[in-house]
Structure formats: structure tokens, C-alpha cells
Design a protein around this nucleic acid. Sequence first.
DNA 1: GTGAATATGGCAACCGCTTGTCATACGGGA
DNA 2: TCCCGTATGACAAGCGGTTGCCATATTCAC
Lengths: 324, 324
Amino acid sequence: MEKVKLGDVAKKAGVSLTTVSRVLNNRGYISKETRKKVNDAMEELNYFPNEIARSLFGNKTNFVGLLFPNVTNPFYGEIVSELESTLASRGYKSLICNTYNNEEKESNYLKMVLANQVDGIIVGSRNRPSSIYQSANLPIVAIDRFVSSKVPIVRSDNYGGACLATEYLIEKECKNIVHFTGSSEEEIKKCDLRMQGYIDTMLKYGKTPRVMKASFDEDEVYQRCKVADYLSASPEIDGAFAAGDTLAGIIYACCKQKGIDMEIVGYDGASMFTGLCGGVSTIRQPIKKMARLATDILLDAIAGTYQEYDSEHVLPVELIKRSY
Amino acid sequence: MEKVKLGDVAKKAGVSLTTVSRVLNNRGYISKETRKKVNDAMEELNYFPNEIARSLFGNKTNFVGLLFPNVTNPFYGEIVSELESTLASRGYKSLICNTYNNEEKESNYLKMVLANQVDGIIVGSRNRPSSIYQSANLPIVAIDRFVSSKVPIVRSDNYGGACLATEYLIEKECKNIVHFTGSSEEEIKKCDLRMQGYIDTMLKYGKTPRVMKASFDEDEVYQRCKVADYLSASPEIDGAFAAGDTLAGIIYACCKQKGIDMEIVGYDGASMFTGLCGGVSTIRQPIKKMARLATDILLDAIAGTYQEYDSEHVLPVELIKRSY
DNA sequence: GTGAATATGGCAACCGCTTGTCATACGGGA
DNA sequence: TCCCGTATGACAAGCGGTTGCCATATTCAC
């Protein structure tokens, strides 16, 4: 059973190649009857036009590359899921790439999507920006990450969110509040802002900021040990603001196992997280809105109607209190 | 800045089109020096061969379609993540599709990936099998789902896992154990086996099985109400086996809020879940192994070296006890 | 000196579809 | 009757790269 092609449809419908193509692309004159004949033939033969061939001609693939660390993380899972859905509803197809925050992987993926002629890229990977981004001459949108001065950024109000989180902990009368952050040699803007918000708020209330570096990427077991050791060594701690929800979850689990009852606030607020880890508060990013905005910007850029480069789009966050 | 193409490289390197193509495809005779010249030219020009054009000629795209309900669910997130990684390491690219268990969406996605000439499909969506699967004449592998008699299935030992879960609850001296299952008009095999394992085990120990239908797909808030109502109405319940971890998480949250302390066992065991919801036990499916096996089968089928159709590959599960 | 192996170029056909141009044919309105 | 709008077909070129075939040239070994 070979692949059905245009010619087969034409034969079946008793019309010419040109006519079938006209039906497919809605061009020129076609009578109702012919259109029906052709459509019927396509149906009967189970014909799908070869998008690869069409792309080749049109120089447009309707592919978009999605470069994110790892959809296993509910935050990325949710954002990728939203991106894929909105893109699909607008006729675009998503090539997914899990970079695991690995620079080599990211740059390989980047080459791959470029070689596959994607019309645009949405990136949420957290590496040092690859030089390929510069030379790649196509629309890119970054989610909560700096790529280059030409790439628009969509992110949540990291600073404001951190303030909100810290103030909540203070309100809850926590005396010793620590901030767990993702570590990285090079200062990633996101972490800075979340940390900055925490530090500023602590100082504002006359408290001493304390920061604990715990990477986002390390092995989970290792992380858990690190956190557990830290908590054991600092029994006075009664509040924590974690820069991400997975980290918050780890802290929560450690506390539970040690019988510590403290207030924890995470960051991200993927629905899966708030559903599964109700003992932790979190700062919810408007994930759907971010995904939609990123899609809008990207597609506008692809269409050539987006001009406002060098722009950051900062969306408001919301405090979600623990549910038990 | 136009797209660089083969001819540009040839010109830059001072060789013919044929020679560049030979370097690219490692065919025929090429001297070290020429190869270097060509490679240098490609580097300088930042050239990537147009995979779309190559695909068109070769009638092979190295695309694989991944049809899953929703990567927001940690189980699907983890399996999609694994699939993408193993596929990428073997030169394949993943087209992701979130079907949301919606039949129309699934069949549209199916048409889409077929139109894009994917070399194969891995599907974990949970719908009534679409007729398109039959007519699609290409390798398909199903994860924990029946598609057609010709499509090999990779799944975990649902029956054994359910027995394990139920026995654990009995061991924990739960008196009234209920099973929460995903509802669906048509009986999906997976649910059947998990339910069957539960029922058989209950009967084996002289207990009365009780089943509560709670869909996998409903709105989470709605689910939560349904579960809460049920728990209120049946205060004698002190143990629950949920057919999926997200459901288990919902039950856990309800219990917490109502101050009920009962044993809950879920099913799936994505690392994110066990990390975030340590108060719940679960039956862990060997997600990585399943993903790798599915990839192996699919790629063998694509290569034409896989013959064992009509086969089910059932992998063993493991009980993960709650960590606090 | 001859034949093989190595190295490169030129050319045409092809992958499946799109598009522009030209030709043909029918029917209706001015 | 003539022209125009409608409807369809035939054909060729092109999208970017691959491949097979033939030609040519150099080098090396026997």
C-alpha cells in the first residue's frame, strides 16, 4: 500500500493535477461539483497532502521549536502543554526539545530545529545563551530568560512575587526565614530578581536575609540530602521561600520526615503542584497567559507584524496559600 | 540575510555541488583536504542542510508523532520526556500532541502527523481507537492502550500492581478499602485490569470490593468535590486505591482538609509525584524502561526488523511506600 | 605503459506539490 | 456577434537536496 499522492486523487476524481491543487489551495475557478468530486476522492483514498513537499515549496513549515529544560517538571509541563495547544489551534506544529539545561544539548537541538526549517522558536531553557541564537535569523521568544537583546522576554513579576512570598512568611510570624535559590555560576536574571525581592523585603522588615544555594538541576536525592542537612544544622529556621516549586516540595518532604512544621512558599504554581502539594504555599505565575502571550508575539513576529523588540513582558503573580 | 544553501557552500569552498553533497552524505571518494574545505565553508556560512528537502527526496523524515493526553500530568510528562530523549539520541525528532483525551483532537492530530510524513507514532492517548489508525500504514506503538490488533502495546503489570496495592492496604489493617477508578463508557483495558486486581484481591481476603467512579479527565475542582462528598458520605473508609496518582493526590488533599488520616495508594509513580506527594504510597511503573522499550520497538518496526506483532509487553511494577 | 583506485565535476532526473502561463471551451449579457 | 467571466487542462519551472551515470584527471603499483 503505497502513499497516496496528488496524482492518484486526480485520477480517481477524473480531473487534472492542476484542478486538485486548485481545490487544495482555494485558487482560481472551481465549480461546486468538481470541488465535491475532488474532496470525495481525497476522502475515499484517505489522502493527506504531503506537508513536507508543500513546506519545501512555500519556504514555510509551520513548525515551531520548543526548547525547555524538561517537561517532567510540572511548571514546564504545563507551559509546554499550553504552548502546544495554542500553537496547534493556530496551525502550528510543535517540535519538542528537552534540553535538561545542558548547553551542548541545547545547541544541538537548536541546530536540529533550524535544519528542520522551523518558522520560530520558543525557549525556556536556562543556559548561557548560545551563539547560534545570534546567527539564527528567525523569530524567537524567551520565557523567563535572557537570550539576547533582540529576543523579547515573557516572564512573571519575579521581584514582586518574591516580595509577596516573603511578606506572607513575615505575616505568618516566621522569625527566621531562609531563601533557597537555584545556583548557577553565571547569574541568571530570574534568580537574581527572586532573590532580590526576598532580600529587600527582609531588610525592609529589619530581618537578616539568609540564602541557601540549592541547584535546580542536581539529582533529586542529592538535593534532598543537602536540604535535610541544612535544616538539621539550622533548627531555628521556621520559614522558607524556595525559588521553585520542586525545591519547595523537597523542603516540605524533609520537614515532614523530620517532624518540623514550618511555613514554606514556593514559586511557579503549576496546577499539578498546587494539587499535589497542598501543604505548601506558592507564588503562581499566570502560566496560560504567559504561554498565550508568547505565542501571540511569536506568530506576530513570524508574520512580520511584531516590531516591539527589546521588550520584556512582565505579568503579575498571585499568592496561593497552602490548603491544609 | 537569506538562507544559506548547498550552492553557497560549494561556491565558498570552490568545489561542485556534487562534491558538497558527497561530503554531506559520506558517499564516493573525497580527499581529506576537500572534506575539510567543505566543512570549513559550512561552518563559516553557518550552513545546515535543509532537512525538509532531504526528507522529501529520501521519503523519510525522522519525525515521530507523540500523542498523549497532556504533559501536565507528571506521568505523561515523564514518559514523553523519556521518549523524546531516547528518540533524539537515535536521530529522531518528536512532534508533540496533547490530545486531552478528546477524540476529535486526537484524530486531527493523527491527520496532522500523517500529513507531516512521520516515520512512526507512539500513542498513549486514551480514546476509542480512531479508524485512521487502521488506514495509516505505518509503525505505531501504544503505551498502555489498545489501538488495534496490529499495534504492539507496552504497559506495566496493571493487574499485579493492583493486587500489590490492595494487599498493602490490607496489610496496613485497613478495614474498608475503596477503589477510585477512571470512568469511561467503554471499558478501557487498563482500568479493567487495575480494577480486576483490586476486586480479586479483596475477595481473596474475604473483603467486599467497593468501586467509586471518578474520571481522569474531569475538571480538577469538580473531581475534588466529588471525592470530598464521597468521603463525607462514607466515613468508615480507611483505605483507598486510586487508579492514577493525580487522583490519589486529590484524595490525599481531601483527607488532609477533613482531618482524615487514611492509607492511600496511587498508581504511576512518576518521580515528580513521589517527590511532591510523599504522604501517599504508589505503584511505580518503570517509566524509563517503558519509554525505551517503546522506542526500540518503534524504531525496529521502522527499520523493518520488528516482526512480533500482536504482542503485549508487560513490565513489572514496584510498590513505593509513603515517605511520611 | 597499462589498469586500477582515488578524486572531482557536470548533468539530468527525481521527491510531491505549487504556481504561473497559455490554451480551450461554454454560457450569458451587451 | 463579440467579449468577458467561469471552468478546466496541459505544461514547465521551481523549492533544496540526492543520486546515478559519465567524463576527466591524477597517482600508484606492477
